[in-house]
Simulated scan of single mutants.
Amino acid sequence: MTTIQEQDVLDLLHEQHNQIKALFGQLSRAQGTEKRELFEDLVRLLAVHESAEEIVVHPRAERKIEGGADVVQKRRHEEDQAKRELSALYDLGVEHPDFDSRLSTFADAVVEHASREESEEFPSLRRNSSPEQLRRMAGALRAAEAMAPTRPHPHSGESRTANLVAGPPMALFDRLRDAVRDWRESHRDQD
């Protein structure tokens, strides 16, 4: 088994892609409170994952892979669309009659996006980066995730700079909101 210090950024991202796919599968079968909780987990994972990719992975891919600027621009565009749809789904709520069909369409787009990253970016990054660079990037990715917003903020921009400047204050607000929501839910039965 690979330890955290040995894991490289591409293995970490691939692992997260698998977690996201699994959450989509669980969410498609869930009902009621479980569905809402799984969706909140998915929102949190996607928001953190995409923000960290913007800060750590895409800049290196732009510089290190053939046609990097074009490849990364396409991924950023997909991520921007995903932020907007995830935000719309969040506002819609899991009980809305259109939620399941929109979630299914969204899941297909996210899985396709992850497949493109894995086939267009990851192999080139692996070829053009040393194992040590990829391990250091995993550490940077984890640090970026710790400061990333836990909700999609589609109007914040899709650049590394936008995520670095706007990310920490939004993350603080999101995490505070998450804590209040979790506290309320844990104390709901006591009222």
Rank of each mutant, 00 (worst) to 15 (best):
H153R: 00
R44H: 15
R116M: 06
H153Q: 04
P154W: 04
G67M: 01
L12T: 03
R126A: 13
A109K: 12
R116D: 15
E40M: 06
M147V: 12
D191F: 09
D98P: 03
A171H: 10
D70K: 05
P169Y: 01
Q16A: 04
N128M: 03
R188K: 15
A88S: 09
R36M: 11
M147D: 15
L125I: 01
I20N: 12
Y90V: 02
R116L: 09
R127M: 12
M1I: 04
L176W: 15
A61C: 08
M137Q: 09
L103M: 13
M137W: 08
A88H: 08
K64F: 14
R188C: 11
T2C: 03
H77R: 08
V180K: 14
L23T: 02
R151G: 01
A143P: 05
H49D: 08
P131D: 12
V9S: 04
R36A: 14
H96G: 11
Q5F: 13
I20T: 13
L42Y: 07
F99N: 07
D108L: 07
R126T: 04
A166P: 05
A114R: 02
D8W: 11
A144Q: 00
A162D: 11
L38M: 04
A69H: 12
G25M: 05
E40R: 10
H113L: 05
H14N: 13
